[in-house]
Amino acid sequence: MSFEKQRIELIDTCKNLLKEGKVNLVLGFAEGQAEMSASPFFIRTPEETDEMKWDDACSMTLAKYLLEKKEGAAIIAKPCDARAIVMYLAENQIERDKLTIIGVECAGMKGKDGLAAPGCEDCKLRIPPVYDILVGYGDGLEAEAVQKAADTMEAELSGKLTRFQKEMEKCILCFSCRQACYGCYCESCFIDREIPNWLPKELDTGAKMVFHLGRAMHLAGRCVECGACERVCPSGVNIRYLVKDLAEFCEALYGYQPGVNPEEVPAMTTFDMNDKEVGFIGGEHNEACCGS
């Protein structure tokens, strides 16, 4: 019926898993520091589980830690974590049988302002796409639906370029969005390369544009909309709208939604002879790209 009930059930589940020795680590949440309302918690003993936190502030995505803890870990997975896990499975980054997924029915997370956390505003998934154990929320899930924040940027600014430039001006090129993103796990990121030098270290808007457009392109058809990039940004850059638009476009065009089925081949690593040529010279459906 509530987060609290779900928390008690989660604690029970984790305690049993650790007691029985089925897992050696549970990735969960603990009380946060200062202004952050929740922080990741690495639970190793059954006793520690009592300190676990579970409420509408646990918006962080934990899936990325799985790349380091490859064996014998259990993870508390919201639908977005589970989608990230599905992508890791599809991209052969982790092994399913070495991992225990404790799925949680998610009522949607809230930010500090009480409105939907980044990534939760349009999310309709309540049940994770993959799990071993499911901890339900109980009744009243729909009533709890989170309030979406108004899209102030669109209202204030005219023109897509102005919006993009405004977002870029805020960026300080600290790359925390890259570090937080489940999908950014390249050993050597393009921006760290010297040859070719994609990103001269000058801090100008151009460098920021190359970074964000390049990253968005790498996430085309892979983003699971967990909102981590926006949540971690110290200067409040919202770059998710670019990737989000790409995700919708990808689904409409190729019928692929990332993070749903681990057996499905990700859209950008395959092709179809009859793919539509949207936006090409002489291609079909030009308006689909240029119109909106």
């Binding site: 897509k160 102005t162 919006r163 993009f164 457009l213 790409l246 949207v278 936006g279 790209c289």
Partner: peptide, 8 residues
């Protein structure tokens, strides 16, 4: 192309 269009 879609990405660039969204970015303006």
């Amino acid at each position: 192309k879609r990405l660039l269009t969204t970015a303006g």
